[in-house]
Each structure stands twice: as C-alpha cells, then as structure tokens.
Amino acid sequence: MSALRGGRLIEVAFWLVPLAAFLLLPGYLMLGSQILIVALFALSLDLILGYAGIVSLGHAAFFGLGAYAAGLLAAKGWGEPLSGLLAGGVIAALAGFVASFLVVRGEDLARLMVTLGIGLLLYEAANRAAFLTGGVDGLSGVAMGKIFGVFAFDIGGKTAYLYSFAVLLLVFIFLKRLTSSPFGLSLRGIRENPARMPAIGSPVRARLVTAYTIGAAIAGIAGALLAQTTQFVGLDSLGFNRSAELLIMLVLGGTGRLYGAIVGAAVFMIAQDYLSGVNPVYWQFWLGLLLVVFVFFARGGILGAVEAAAKRLGRSSQERAR
C-alpha cells in the first residue's frame, strides 16, 4: 500500500521535472520541446514494440505522415492547431491500420523488412511529390493559429513547450490506462508468447491490428506536433535515421514501461545535443558504445537498471530490518 503511494509520488515528481525545466532553463525551450515530442513518438513505439512485441524499423513513416498532414493543412491556410493535431493522428492511424495487415502476419525478420520497406516507400513518395511536400527543401510556410484561439506560438518557444508538454501528458495518461487494462495485458501476453494466446482463445491478429493502429496514430500526433511547433516539415521526419534513432532511444530507456520511452528520449537527445556540440564523430562513437553496453549488461535499459537497483536496495534494507 505504502509502496503504491510511494510510486505515485515518484510519478508526480517525474512530471514536475519538465515543468521545472520550463521555469529554470528558458534558454533551452527549443530543445525541450523537441525532447517532449520525441518522447511522445517513443511512447508510440513502446506500445507496439514494448508491449505488443512488434519490431519496427519504419515507425517514422507515421511520424512523417502526421507531420506532413498537419504541416500541409497549416500551409494551405488551416492553422488551427488542435484540429491539425487530430488530422495528423487520423491520417497516420489510417495508414497504420492498412499497414498493420502486412506487419502483423510475419515473424520478427519479416516485420523488420516490411516496416523498413514502408518507411523507405513513404520517404521516396514524399521526395517525389515535391509540388506538395517541398521535397528535399522541406515544407515551409506553415503558419499556425492560436491554441484555443488564445495562445499564440511565440518566438521564445514558451507556448510550443507547454503545448507539447500538455499533449505528451494527455497521451501518456491514455497509454497508462490502456496498458494497465485487460487489453494491455493481452498485448503483453502476445509479446510473451504468441503461440499460447490463441490456445486461450485470444484473437491475436485483431489485437495487434488495434495496437498497431493506435501506435501509428500517436506517432502521427507527435509528427504533427513537430510540424506545428517548428513550423517546418523536412523529409528527414519520415527518414530511416529517425526510425532507427527512435528504436535506440527506446531500448536505451527500457521497453514496455512507458517511462523508459520518455527517459530514453531525454537522455538520448540531451547527450546528442551536448556531445555533437563537442565533436559530431564522438557522438556516433559514444552512442555505439553505449548501445552495445546496454544490450549486453542492462537488457531492461536505464529504467530496468534502476528497477533492479531499487529491488536490491529494498531487499537489503528488509534484511537489515530483520
């Protein structure tokens, strides 16, 4: 019981960190917004990979779709942010639903290839459709209206930061609910043993289609958020690099925990910002090293390591009490 309340306290404290950063680090709001958005994106991958066990190397496809949907809407004169966000989510959800039928069938390797293929396909399509997307130059002229008709996006990035924070928090609460529900348990069941699930009467395909569609929708919302807050959409928003980095962040933070996605995104992006400022070559080197270390010595990522340490601490304090 008290452990539960302790857990709640830690959660509240966790969410106070980005708010504290808003107040204390006004010079870093741009980076901060990016972290919040990428954290949202990482959450979407955590649902499909961390919970449902679907590996993906092309998740940026949905991020990019959402970004272009919201960006194009605004560029063509519809600058209302919330409906743009919704549009990004819906477009990505539709694409995710269609793609899911290809993805859900195969084994891991087939899934990697299919998701990779979908990502490359969309990238090339966006590249060719330069008349619409701006091609390699990117989509500019994204003019955003005010949130609720009141809060305009400011140069300092305050609105963008708080907007991103609010969306991240809302989606997080939704995912928390989803993953602790029977549906969430069934996704973990599929991840743990897809062969047993049908033998207890579970329609595995249908569950995975649902999960994949939701994951795509959230990725789309994250993409739309990036388009709206930076008022620009580049081809890299649906590039392979983004998908691969996302996977790295999630593994780094720890899969199947939600918080791992957020911590992984934050650590990754802060380290990238710092180290690539020092020397871009070093960044790749340290990233590579970190990855190998984590995969071999801390399978649960940063959060997994923290949990294990907390458990060990709890056990030794229990023993001391005895």
């Binding site: 609910r177 989803l178 529900s181 549906f183 348990l185 069934s186």
Partner: peptide, 18 residues
C-alpha cells in the same frame, strides 16, 4: 487472469485496469 478475461470476452477492454 488473462485466460479468464479472454473466456469472458473482456480482454479487449481498456477503460478499467486489470
């Protein structure tokens, strides 16, 4: 519990925690 939820047709629900 998962097997029981599946039997009862409750395993696709998401509003209430397990």
């Amino acid at each position: 519990v998962l097997a029981i939820l599946e039997r009862k047709g409750l395993a696709a629900r998401w509003m209430r925690p397990v």
